[in-house]
Design a protein around this nucleic acid. Structure first.
Lengths: 350, 350
DNA sequence: ACACGTTGTGTACACGTGTACATAATATAG
DNA sequence: CTATATTATGTACACGTGTACACAACGTGT
């Protein structure tokens, strides 16, 4: 009798937020609380009559099952953490859009943790995820502190690193095959007949971006081609402008540039057009990476690599629903997207 | 005695995810469970000695307070829902980046709900937010079903509509003063000496965008100026390309275009440059709205309006932490950002 | 009519935490 | 050294839900 009443003794009742509970619905419908619970539990056994009564009362009272409470004894929160920096960047935001959409379709809920700024925030983000008993954490940027691995797993949390390869046991590490893409980029520039080949990269590149660079440079070494390399700035459009300006100012002006990112590539193309009066692909061939929306814009029409986003996400979801996953590293081929920023092949294919 | 053991009777123990509880830490540290709770509750009274023991044991066992559980009796989840569609759009993603960052700084956690696709998803998103006892829901796109208002408030949820003005009692409705901006845009084009003035807008514009259009057209009516109006497509770059092409193909080709969105403006500028060989601002003046990153790119250098993002967010947070907010509508002035897509004033100011 | 399987409901407990209250330990004042 | 004020710990209960178990109601077949 007493337990059914709420806050009888406390006078501070009014300051407390009132919530509608299963108890209230049960009383209103004239059934037991368990019947309410069962009504909203798929596969539970309730008669059609009581179910109807419960649903009606719930509608009237505005009742919704408290998933925070239900997570408690089901030990499945349904929450997945998305940890990322520079969320407003074209490629990153596209990734987040896709991920959140697919997670939602899979019945999960996404908790977005922004780690822009200090690198340290990734650690805090993971700790926060653990606090909310996130089923998994998908890390899009920043390297997590490996010492956290145990804490993650002792709380039954799955871990996915996208575009990172770190020493983080028990996690899925997935991303495009950056080296192969870098190699392909070089071949494409050679095939286009470029004589002076250059690389434009940011100074604070991530692991993934450095891999692209390495693939490109290694392939050049193999082919016995010299690479004019310009590195500086952030991974941004502005950096691209500056890198492009620096490269095109050289006496031995390059005629083919691989940019490790589409944003940089857009900057390079604009530097060429606005500052030097050069046009792609006639005067200059440019290749980017990511296939952001702007790559398709008519002013750029950028030849680039599309990240295998769909496959990455599919694998992510599969991993998140697997029981006891082992450490796994997956490299997926990036799709080369031919547009019109690279000179048509003067040297025939093959 | 029995209650301290876990899952003694069930044989399915192994399939259940083991979590570290305050109980475990207490036993390991040789203190009571309450002391553990107090250690992690700011302002609670624990001796330095026990606090140290607890912290050490927590570190060793990898313990983190379960915020799902603590939300139960504190009736504050600390979660705020962000409901938005087309997350990968420049302005939207910038907004989300800022919001999530500021929310985090305020000690809140953001739950991102993607409502791209069906309009109906906004309703589901709100219901989901309620299920997770979100402290507030910030709706960036889509009109919520007004019938949900009661359900929201009966669960103590705050509501913010950004860039929408709907009949949703008890909510904060906030955004830029779109009408005023439209008016300013017209004046700017007139002052630049434009003779044939046009408007480019998408066919599925939101309320906010329609307001800009209305402000622009009304001001034109007042000034006795005719507006060539082209409407079609989505609110996207591609639509801008088509709208721009259609406008510039006319016999009475416009020399000043107000685009209701920067994305559309970029499309219009590219149509002018790539398809008609026209340049801004010499041959054509263009004004956009949003001040997305690309507006600053050298290829566009777009004169536009910056949304008062900081103030919007500040007001949002203030609202979310207010006790019993009343319905409120806030219009903030959008800042006119002069760049170089509009002909320099031929008619002197004032 | 009886034994028996089916189905729906109720009871009791667990999930992991915070907090009011009572009580034990300690510091302070006389 | 005792009486008292202060502080730290322990006890009990509440938050809102899911589920194993017991049991009542209800046909069904002989």
């Amino acid at each position: 009798m007493y337990k059914n009443q709420r806050n009888l003794m406390s006078e501070k009742v009014s300051s407390r937020k009132q919530q509608v509970r299963a108890e209230d619905v049960a009383r209103h419908a004239g059934v037991s609380r368990v019947s309410v619970s069962r009504t909203f539990t798929p596969g539970a056994s309730v008669s059609a009559a009581t179910r109807a009564k419960v649903l009606k009362s719930a509608e009237i009272l505005g009742y919704r099952v408290n998933r925070l409470a239900s997570s408690l004894n089901r030990s499945e929160s349904g929450i997945v953490a998305l940890i990322a920096a520079e969320i407003d960047t074209p490629h990153r935001s596209a990734m987040i859009a896709e991920l959140s959409d697919k997670l939602q379709a899979a019945g999960k809920v996404t908790m977005l943790i922004n780690t822009s700024g200090y690198e340290e925030r990734v650690k805090d983000a993971l700790l926060q995820a653990i606090s909310f008993r996130t089923e998994a954490a998908i890390i899009l940027s920043g390297a997590p502190d490996p010492s956290l691995a145990d804490t993650c797993f002792s709380n039954g949390m799955k871990l996915v690193l996208i575009n990172r390869e770190e020493d983080f046991p028990g996690s899925l590490q997935i991303g495009p095959d950056n080296r192969a893409a870098g190699k392909t980029a070089l071949k494409a520039l050679l095939r286009a007949g470029c004589k002076r080949i250059a690389l434009a990269n940011s100074a604070n590149a991530t692991w993934s971006i450095l891999e692209r660079q390495k693939g490109f440079v290694d392939a050049a070494d193999e082919a016995g081609v010299e690479v004019l390399s310009e590195v500086g700035g952030l991974t941004s459009y502005q950096a691209g402008l500056e890198l492009g300006t620096a490269l095109l100012d050289r006496e031995d002006r390059p005629d083919g540039i691989f940019c490790t990112t589409d944003l940089i590539a857009c900057g390079v193309i604009d530097a060429a057009r606005q500052r030097f009066g050069l046009r792609t692909p006639d005067d200059l061939s440019v290749i980017g990476f990511d296939d952001i929306a702007q790559a398709e814009w008519e002013g750029y029409d950028l030849t680039t690599f599309a990240q295998p986003t769909d496959q990455i996400i599919e694998k992510c979801l599969e991993w998140c629903t697997t029981e006891q996953p082992e450490t796994e590293t997956v490299k997926l081929p990036a799709k080369f997207v031919w547009r019109n920023s690279v000179q048509k092949a003067r040297i025939p294919l093959k």
